[in-house]
Design a binder for these strands. Structure first.
Lengths: 336, 336
DNA sequence: CTGAAAGCGCTTACAG
DNA sequence: CTGAAAGCGCTTACAG
């Protein structure tokens, strides 16, 4: 490996001068700059970033941990984070947790990837107590609809409002029996999903039923889970005339089951998803869905982290709410 | 930050001893180990990986660069690479190139992410000359169907054979006018797609037409591109009774267009994709497709890289061929 | 089985 | 505008 020292020797100058040239400092005579540059080119010198990082105390790497890259929402989000980070000269180390608490803990304790300046984490199972017990001191920004009593920046759209918007659309288009697909089992410690809460609030406001018989719990949030949840719902009792799925992949699974059962969408059952992944636009029955502003989410998360890293952020945790909108497609209003 | 020195001071031993404990070396008396461990716990010491990396000359990070995380195939593959890397205690830095040559060059020159021991790259536009001009000396493993005259490990399924398998299936099920969606514009320097070659070979073998009127070139390989390509094909002339798409996302786009035109799949037009992404299984008309062994691809790529890094690999470039199989679904044979 | 020293390649004060 | 020295936190020979 070619080091600064080699270049300095070749150019007949001190290491510092080479460093100045490499880092583009002012106050280097053009002649000197050129001489050093020639030595650099001849030797094919490339700075050793590890050494620079050790010296500067930062690595230029931020980590992003999402539950599952197989879920297009997170894949698309990861792409946006990579782009946002690049604009700040940061590179992104990617990890996935499978939405398992132990993995989330590991990641947030920095065990898997301690070579990072900060972390953006989209947790599923993690608890507030886990966050409070965190010993790693690098900045952490949380993503998503879980709410925590812990002093960390948190970026999430208004999930309750978004869910209400989706349900209102179903109510407005004449649906009266609206189910929810994808609630996790509730417990005292783990607050119910905000999306589930929004579903319930809007139905209550409309005076429509919002009982447990209209809610299907699932283990995960993939297409298969959506398909099974839809089947369970249909087997369970009186058919709903609409379903609001936790996310688009589940909604796609629900469409699959409805097709298998010979039910028409939206005539028999309307379907609304959440995430607006590209796939939803191209589904056989294009999916009505909530579109979170993914670019804004990624940008805000990276900005927050960069502010923390620069020490320019306020002390108290930041709470940012990127926008969202309802995208109406055939799965609720038929061919227009 | 707590350093080895602090721990040594606290425990009243030398730095070396602490290092021995941290690294789990033998030949440390249990009493000593415990004393040091207590100091570590009390101070909350965490090793500085950057320093370790500088000293050892490696970072424990490998980079993976794919064209587009929005394509589920690459997202799913990235997940598999992360898992495979974790088994070797490597962390994955993720980058996407947009399939643009300049970005691919940048990545393969190590400019974006020089903090890595090696790189796995799935190129689209990169040329052999770019690879030959590469100055970065870190190991590089190539992925995918492009073929290069450059001394690098290359992991790819047998794309020609896989394409022939897909086309044979169409021929065997009675199709006679089989189109290809997603050929890039050809040039002298840029060899035609292997999948296109397989399509042509199999049609030739079957004595069926394989003219340019059955090939639609596209700019990219997303759902939208597939939809447009299918529309162009239908507008162009006599309707084909089958299409073989470059990948599943394009096939999904083709399904969209066929539905919009009121054509039935597979009765009017059969569709075969390539990649076997989860989405394909759940499409309204589940998609027949080629399933590359993604786990094997990821594992082989990481193994290759790890071998290079360990210096245990042979000098000549390795060429690995993970398996693939045809998955038959409704888009070619209807409901079974 | 443990200690003292050197050095990975860089940047940061400090001189001049 | 340029140079010589110190040090980021670790591991690796080398002694003892």
């Amino acid at each position: 490996m070619v080091s600064l020292k080699d270049v300095a020797q070749r150019a007949g100058v001190s290491i510092k001068t080479v460093s100045n040239v490499v880092n583009g400092y002012q106050h280097v005579t053009p002649a000197m700059r050129e001489r050093v540059q020639r030595a650099i080119d001849e030797l094919g010198y490339r700075p050793n970033l590890t050494a620079r990082h050790l010296r500067k105390g930062r690595t230029g790497i931020i980590a992003l941990a999402v539950p599952e890259l197989g879920n297009p929402y997170f894949a698309e989000l990861a792409g946006a984070v990579i782009d946002a980070a690049a604009r700040h000269d940061y590179t992104v180390l990617l990890d996935h947790t499978g939405g398992r608490r132990d993995q989330e803990l590991l990641v947030c304790q920095g065990f898997r990837a301690h070579v990072m300046d900060g972390l953006i984490l989209s947790p599923i199972e993690l608890e507030s107590e886990d966050l409070l017990a965190r010993t790693d001191t690098s900045p952490l920004v949380l993503l998503g609809e879980r709410e925590y009593d812990a002093p960390y920046d948190h970026i999430a759209i208004d999930n309750v409002a978004a869910a209400r918007l989706a349900v209102r659309h179903l109510v407005d288009t004449g649906r009266r029996r609206i189910a929810f697909l994808g609630a996790r089992e509730e417990s005292a410690r783990r607050p119910a999903h905000l999306r589930l809460r929004g579903w319930r609030e809007e139905l209550d406001a409309a005076g429509l039923p919002a009982g447990d018989d209209l809610v299907v719990a699932t283990e995960a949030y993939g297409r298969e889970d959506g398909a099974r949840a839809m089947a369970a719902l249909l087997d369970r009792g009186p058919r709903p005339d609409a379903v609001f799925a936790y996310n688009d992949t589940m909604a796609v699974g629900a469409l699959r089951t409805l097709a298998d059962r010979g039910l028409r969408v939206p005539e028999d059952v309307a379907v609304v998803g959440f995430d607006d992944i590209d796939e939803s636009r191209f589904a056989h029955t294009p999916l009505t869905t909530i579109a979170p502003d993914k670019e804004a989410i990624a940008r805000l998360a990276v900005d927050c982290l960069v502010d923390r890293l620069a020490g320019t952020a306020a002390t108290e945790p930041r709470r940012a709410r990127p926008g969202h909108r309802l995208v109406v497609r055939d799965s609720t209003v038929g061919r227009r």
